[in-house]
Design a protein around this nucleic acid. Structure first.
Lengths: 160, 160
DNA sequence: ATAAATCTGTTATGAAATAACATAACGACT
DNA sequence: AGTCGTTATGTTATTTCATAACAGATTTAT
């Protein structure tokens, strides 16, 4: 997390738990089945950890939290799971944080984030990239993926 | 660099040398003087390496290339210089590559890049972020900095 | 059943970045 | 010129992030 702030009371907590978490995992399972992909144990576990978190998680946070009894995972276990989750659109990597979040937006989309430098929250949103990318088209580039990360202060942290 | 391609003949080479490099360094020196900042020896050397390169450079590329006689720099030397160059707008970090480029656009601006996954070229351009960021405004975020990185294939690598 | 493909477990290593503290250079002021 | 506060550098060590390589297990299709 960034430079921890004092406004956490004001913050929406994104982490899922209980039935909501179960439903999200079930949805993921179903979407895997459609695509002939397998939500195996380590993949499911990493997704569960991401969905349960209120903030982006670092790879080594996931590694430490992986085991039910507190035993850490080996790094490749988690990195492979993250690779899978990203490929299927269940998770996104936030480059400027070296951290990961579960996807919170339905449907195929460009991932874009508003990241609070004070409390560490990362809010996913859907940018309208049409105008930005028309400049790119002119150069002849064939764009495959776009990363957009905006750093600043969330409403709660500005207020505090 | 990415998965090196065979089309390098088609590519524009961005690296400066000779008089052009000298002019660019002189400009930087002048801009520093205006802002009461100092383009010291290690800072100047790192900027020189970036300006002379045809592609984004990794920090450890810079570390290895730093010494005139082939002696590497110590990591903090280069990381501090990069921090300075970014702060003054002389260089940009490309998050999705862990690499750095000299700034190639005049005036204060948002840095955005088109990155070729084949040849490793990174073209800086000026995005129109108005529409994308109106969504952000609605959430109450105060945005301080924006990173936009588009991955794909440049014109030359599509052709080849 | 068996082959091909995919996924996992494990060891080890490589790459990227920073912490901490000592020393040196600069700028402003008297 | 001296000296004080500030800014920059030098150096050692460590931390953080990520992947290579290969053996073994599991799944899927035939």
């Amino acid at each position: 997390m960034a430079s921890d702030c004092q406004h956490h009371e004001h913050h929406v907590h994104h982490g899922l738990s209980g039935a909501a978490l179960g439903r999200a995992l079930g949805d993921a399972e179903a979407r895997c089945a459609e695509g002939r992909e397998r939500l195996t144990t380590p993949r499911r576990r990493v997704l569960e950890l991401l969905l349960g978190s209120d903030a982006p998680m670092k790879a080594y946070d996931l590694i430490a939290a992986f085991g039910a009894g507190g035993e850490p995972a080996k790094p490749p276990t988690v990195y492979r799971a993250l690779e899978f989750l990203e490929r299927l659109g269940f998770a996104h990597r936030i480059e400027s944080l070296n951290a990961y979040v579960p996807c919170r937006i339905e449907g195929g989309h460009v991932a874009a984030f508003l990241i609070c430098d004070c409390c560490g929250e990362a809010a996913e949103f859907q940018p309208d990239l049409g105008p930005s990318m028309s400049a790119a088209k002119a150069t002849g580039y064939a764009v495959r993926a776009v990363t957009l990360e905006a750093r600043g202060l969330c409403a709660a942290c500005q207020a505090g």
